[in-house]
C-alpha cells in the first residue's frame, strides 16, 4: 500500500467535490473533480486555472436564456471537456485555486529553505 501513502502525502488540495495531487513521477498535477480525473503538466494546469477563473459568472447569472445555465469548459489537449453549471464552475474554481495556492506555498518554502542551506 505504499502507493496510497504516497498519494496522501502529495495531496495538494481537497474540497467536497474533489481533490488534487501531485505526481512526481510524471511531473503532473492530477485533478479529480466530481469523478472526472484529468492530468496536467504544470503549464496546462495554469492555463486551465486561468480559463476557469475567467468565466464570466455574473454574466451567466444575469442572462436568463437557457444557454447561460451551463458552459463548456475544455482544456488544452482536451483531457477535460465538460459542460459545467454555474455552481460546478464555482466548485471547480475553489479546487483549482486551492491547488495553485498550495503549489505557490510549496515553491516559496523550497525557495526559502534553499537560501537557508546556502
Amino acid at each position: 500500500m505504499a502507493l496510497v501513502s504516497d498519494l496522501t502525502t502529495k495531496i495538494l488540495f481537497e474540497t467536497e467535490k474533489g481533490y488534487s495531487y501531485q505526481c512526481d513521477l510524471t511531473n503532473s498535477i492530477i485533478i479529480n473533480f466530481v469523478d472526472t480525473v484529468s492530468s496536467y503538466k504544470i503549464h496546462d494546469f495554469l492555463i486551465f486555472q486561468r480559463k476557469v477563473n475567467n468565466v464570466d459568472i455574473l454574466n451567466m447569472l444575469y442572462d436568463l436564456s437557457d444557454k447561460s445555465d451551463a458552459q463548456l469548459i475544455e482544456t488544452t489537449k482536451r483531457n477535460f471537456s465538460r459542460n459545467l453549471t454555474i455552481c460546478e464552475i464555482v466548485q471547480l474554481r475553489e479546487l483549482l485555486n486551492g491547488t495553485k495556492f498550495t503549489l505557490n506555498l510549496h515553491s516559496m518554502l523550497c525557495n526559502i529553505l534553499k537560501v537557508e542551506l546556502i
Binding site: 501531485q22 511531473n27 498535477i29 505557490n104 510549496h106 515553491s107 523550497c110
Partner: peptide, 10 residues
C-alpha cells in the same frame, strides 16, 4: 515533493 512551479519557469 518536487517544486513543479519553479522547475517549469523562472
Amino acid at each position: 515533493m518536487k517544486d513543479l512551479l519553479r522547475t517549469s519557469t523562472s
